[in-house]
């Protein structure tokens, strides 16, 4: 509306406000992504930068044609033929799915408990859940290395309780990865769940009780269905970043079975195969778009009802 005012200072201000962030994101988010797509269609070369073709602006239209002709789907072919990539994608899928379910199972009672607290205590509980998010995730993972190592607190405690005779190698295992992920992402699951549960109208539960529904059944018939949007948001908020997670599996996981983020990292830093790394990234984005689109569809449907 402001932009429609003729004359005056509205014009330059509106233009500045809209253009500055748009141009920045176009230059440093959109353009880089297009470059990834382009390099994924290039071929590896022992050169600097390590791929061909490079696009030469000076060559003009002929250069563009030669450039387009040299693009290839080679990297995607390799992606499909080498089992390593498929295995990493599947591993990521498995870890993201299993972790999301564990997070939901652990997070729901916490969020539900928070929503049931006295209103005076709720903001405090909320701050306490958010607070660890402000400490470095690297520190949080490192804390678990401390605890899970062979001579760590966890094994000491288990030995003291007489549950194990010899120390268990917790690190470099899927268990450690799941612990690290659940620990790091718990706030992301609890917060959206709490946001919807906290809004649940207490009179609905009273109505359910009035109609002869015991408390536990009212929970399943009223509270849980009403919290569905929070569950969807929480799962999405955890599933997507976990799928592309690099640091946690790298520090806590088994190096023989890697997630796709680690594969991308290795292709890029160790193998210097930039086209392959780019192709991995493009396919990864494609995969992650699916749950986002599904979620938005579901939301649009819910809004219509």
């Amino acid at each position: 509306m402001m932009a429609r005012w003729r004359g005056g200072q509205g014009n330059w201000w509106a233009a500045f406000v809209r253009l500055a962030p748009t141009l920045w994101l176009a230059a440093f988010f959109l353009l880089p992504f297009l470059i990834i797509v382009k390099i994924s269609l290039s071929q590896t070369a022992i050169a600097q930068p390590p791929y061909t073709p490079t696009f030469d602006l000076a060559a003009g239209l002929a250069g563009l044609r030669a450039f387009l002709a040299a693009l290839s789907l080679e990297s995607y072919r390799i992606l499909g033929s080498d089992f390593l990539y498929l295995a990493s994608y599947l591993k990521s899928l498995q870890v993201a799915a299993v972790s999301s379910v564990i997070l939901l199972i652990i997070g729901y009672p916490i969020a539900y408990g928070m929503a049931r607290l006295h209103p005076r205590w709720q903001p405090i509980a909320l701050v306490l859940v958010i607070l660890p998010f402000w400490t470095s995730f690297l520190i949080r993972i490192y804390a678990w290395i401390n605890i899970l190592q062979r001579e760590g607190l966890f094994n000491t405690a288990l030995a003291a309780l007489g549950l194990v005779d010899t120390p268990v190698a917790w690190l470099s295992s899927d268990t450690a990865v799941y612990i690290g992920i659940v620990y790091s992402y718990l706030p992301f699951m609890v917060l959206p769940l709490y946001a919807t549960l906290e809004k649940t109208d207490a009179t609905l539960l009273e109505a359910a009780a009035d109609l002869g529904c015991p408390r536990w059944r009212a929970f399943w018939l009223v509270t849980v269905p009403l919290s569905a949007p929070g569950v969807a948001a929480g799962v999405l908020l955890c599933f997507i970043p976990i799928f592309g997670e690099f640091v946690i599996p790298d520090l806590l996981g088994d190096s023989r079975s890697v997630m796709i983020g680690q594969t991308l990292w290795t292709e890029f830093f160790a193998n210097k195969d930039w086209p392959a790394a780019s192709a991995v990234a493009v396919v990864l984005v494609g995969i992650l778009l699916l749950p986002i689109v599904l979620h938005q569809r579901a939301q649009a449907r819910a809004d219509k009802d």
């Binding site: 652990i106 408990g113 509980a125 718990l186």
Partner: peptide, 19 residues
């Protein structure tokens, strides 16, 4: 409810405390 919240918070803070 109270035990869930308490355990959740303990899980979040214990590793940091140990560190």
């Amino acid at each position: 409810n109270i035990v869930s919240v308490a355990c959740g918070l303990a899980f979040l803070y214990l590793p940091i405390a140990v560190l």
